[in-house]
């Protein structure tokens, strides 16, 4: 076996190390440039979703909830009075986790809107859950909801998307978590 030359061993290591350091430095610089727009965009988007699911409020205040099911909660205010809450909850659907934001109006106790934040469902099937034809079904509902198939939905029932019962069920589960969290807040408030 030929004797190993230290230069032969060192050079690859040094070159690789230099490449890693340079790449990391460049990435850190790009991150510095883009971190702000990304965070701003995310904030804008979630503010917009909040105003869609709880249109009656004028400003929103973040609440810290001691609830495992809810990842984020905002209190909606109008003229300094609480008019409702938005809850972000998730449930696992067919392709992965579905994240849902639910707005609940506390003057009526009804759901004021539901919006799907992220989903990984089958395009053309489960992904149709993001359409308003499906999410509008949740509006004005007040109690724990159930998914049904092939029938006219009665009160407290949600018509499943054709061919996507699992997705429909997951969205409903997430909404139910929000309803439960809302009821808990109301109870504690009394």
């Amino acid at each position: 076996m030929k004797k190993l030359n230290p230069k032969e061993i060192l050079k690859p290591i040094v070159v690789l190390l230099v490449i890693c350091v340079v790449v990391t430095a460049v990435l850190a610089a790009v991150n510095g440039l883009t971190a702000e727009p990304i965070a701003k965009l995310a904030e804008e988007q979630s503010a917009e979703t909040r105003s869609v699911v709880l249109p009656s409020a004028e400003e929103y205040q973040k609440l810290e909830l001691d609830n495992e099911d809810i990842s984020e909660c905002y209190e909606g205010l109008k003229n300094g009075k609480t008019v409702g809450y938005t809850f972000t909850s998730s449930a696992s659907g067919y392709g992965g986790t579905i994240e849902v934001m639910t707005g609940i109006d506390c003057t009526t106790g009804e759901i004021s809107g539901v919006s799907i934040l992220s989903q990984d469902e089958t395009p053309g099937l489960g992904a149709n859950a993001t359409k308003s034809e499906f999410t509008d079904q949740y509006k004005q509902k007040a109690q724990e909801l159930e998914v049904i198939k092939n029938a006219e939905p009665a009160d407290g029932e949600i018509q499943a998307i054709t061919g996507s019962t699992i997705t429909s069920q997951a969205v409903t589960d997430a909404v139910n978590k929000a309803v439960a969290a809302y009821e808990k807040i109301e109870k504690e408030g009394e």
Binding site: V30, P37, I38
Partner: peptide, 8 residues
């Protein structure tokens, strides 16, 4: 890098 730019 492309990922960060696309995100932003």
């Amino acid at each position: 890098m492309v990922q960060m730019l696309v995100k932003a």
